[in-house]
């Protein structure tokens, strides 16, 4: 015979389990929404300035860093040129030779450099970099996104952040290439042929 006390305990346990499942489902929804919103935001623009602003917005709002730089590889694939930055001293990063430092290395090798724990608050130079993400289409590196220190309350990069960085690698590259090609079109979309 089950007692009233035992039933109440079981109910409490079930309620707690349901609450945990609900939180897990909401977390899953938020994670999926982050990825969807990032892709949508990157491909919603026709001009380069808007795409760069979208990358910055995604890094700040979804990953949690207000310090970043976006670089483009020159046509000869020798140097990186700074396209946009936020929260860092841009003078130090105007041009970087491929292979130089973490940023140049990411551009040369096409491999992302990631510090999952994030750069420390006191770090400077390459030590202040949390992630260098090459923007790639196929094997061709079009540029690099460098994420420096994370926001103080953000302990490190989680699995969704890593997914977002991976997504930025391809989708930011495609979005930037598209704006370049769109700018070269004789008859942009919306203009009668």
């Amino acid at each position: 015979m089950v007692t009233q006390q035992e039933l109440e305990t079981e109910n409490q346990t079930l309620r707690s389990q349901i609450e945990s499942m609900k939180t897990a489902a909401e977390e899953q929804m938020a994670n999926m929404a982050s990825l969807y919103i990032a892709v949508n935001s990157l491909h919603a623009a026709l001009d380069r300035t808007s795409v760069l602003a979208s990358v910055q917005d995604v890094v700040t709002t979804l990953i949690g860093s207000e310090e970043m730089a976006i670089f483009e590889t020159d046509p000869e694939q020798r140097r990186l040129k700074l396209l946009a930055s936020q929260g860092i001293e841009p003078g130090h990063y105007q041009e970087i030779c491929l292979g130089d430092g973490l940023i140049g290395k990411a551009a040369k090798t096409g491999e992302a450099v990631i510090r999952p724990d994030g750069a420390s608050a006191e770090a400077v130079g390459d030590e202040a970099i949390t992630a260098c993400i090459p923007m790639k289409i196929g094997q061709r590196v079009l540029g690099v996104i460098a994420v420096f220190r994370l926001l103080p309350h953000k302990g490190g990069l989680n699995s969704v952040d890593l997914d977002l960085l991976d997504l930025l690698s391809t989708h930011a590259a495609v979005a930037l290439l598209f704006t370049r090609l769109y700018g070269e079109m004789d008859h942009p979309i919306g203009v009668p042929l």
């Binding site: 929404a33 917005d57 995604v58």
Partner: peptide, 12 residues
Amino acid sequence: DSATALTMERTL
């Protein structure tokens, strides 16, 4: 003023 934040919050 962040389009990304607005979309995220609105979706949730």
